[in-house]
Nucleic acid binder design. Structure first.
Lengths: 181, 181
DNA sequence: GTCTATACACCGATAGAC
DNA sequence: GTCTATCGGTGTATAGAC
């Protein structure tokens, strides 16, 4: 198994159980590696595993969200590409957002800087697309915040209500709403 | 100190650290009671403390949200009263939502039924107000879901961005948006 | 690079004195 | 009703064989 595949499996555990709930026993079971083997790959332990997982999400953000938003093409097309990748990343609402899980839990302090940066760059990059459509930068920023906010809220509701319908509705309408609100 | 005051202090810890992060040491410190004293008041331990805290939130939901929504008066006034109470309850975005914290953490399974019920009754009651304004029940339900979704998303963003501005913006515009969207 | 075995701290929970 | 002391279990992390 590749290192990346290991990290993907760790990610699944952190997403589902949060930082505290992602015990070494669970991480071990999910990867098929013994605890000591995990420490071979991540010498600084659980915190390094979480960092590796966060780095992978940041890579996803860069390659599947920011890159797409900065690409050539019409704003509408780029935003639609973003929402499609968001939909896939969260498995149509079935998987939680790692940022939200880590931000709301006890691990808040540990990862706060990284989470804040990631959310901000996502919002900023989306806002820049909206500026291209003629919006002033303040309104663009607010509308971009609203978009991320709705995605996060939809994921919370999906988990709390055990129903992905609100998430799918948000994803579907988001491009048009952002551009024409 | 009254039992209610104890529960309020427990609530603060659960909100801030989540179920797993709310250790007996922290709960003890926050209340000023020793661990054994906490077990005197809550014989079934931490789970009973969390249940008591959830019950208190449910009481708040009933008295400060549902009751207000069902009251006499214009729909707009009732919805404005709701958002004002929401704003206060979350300390203008500074405090997380217990439902979200518990739903996203490992404790999901333990409290899932209660959280799902609470979110649903909130949405349903808000939707009934919207039906009064002439909306069909399906659109009313969706718009009510959107309102709760935005509140939850705003709280996630407030925590992740360390900025309550999105929350305050959502609270301010929510009544008008719900009624005129 | 993986394992078994283990160290040590902290967890939730309890006993029993006052 | 509160405390100190302590229990068993589990958490993270390590040592060392293979």
């Amino acid at each position: 198994m590749s290192r990346d595949e290991v990290i993907v499996r760790l990610l699944k555990v952190f997403r589902q159980y949060g930082y505290e709930g992602a015990t070494l026993a669970r991480l071990s079971e999910a990867t098929g590696l013994g605890k000591a083997s995990l420490y071979h790959h991540f010498p600084k332990g659980k915190e390094e595993m979480a960092t590796a997982v966060l780095n992978r999400i940041n890579h996803w953000l860069e390659s599947s969200i920011l890159k797409v938003l900065r690409a050539a093409g019409k704003p509408e097309e780029r935003i639609r590409a973003m929402t499609a990748n968001v939909d896939e990343h969260y498995s149509h609402g079935q998987q939680s957002c790692l940022f939200a899980v880590l931000a709301l839990g006890e691990s808040h302090d540990l990862f706060h800087t990284e989470i804040k940066y990631a959310l901000n760059i996502w919002i900023d990059t989306l806002a820049e697309v909206l500026v291209e459509t003629g919006l002033d930068s303040e309104r663009a920023r607010q509308r971009a915040e609203d978009a991320i906010l709705q995605i996060q809220g939809a994921l919370v509701l999906a988990r709390g209500l055990d129903d992905t319908a609100p998430f799918e509705r948000v994803i579907k309408r988001l491009p048009e709403e952002i551009l024409n609100a």
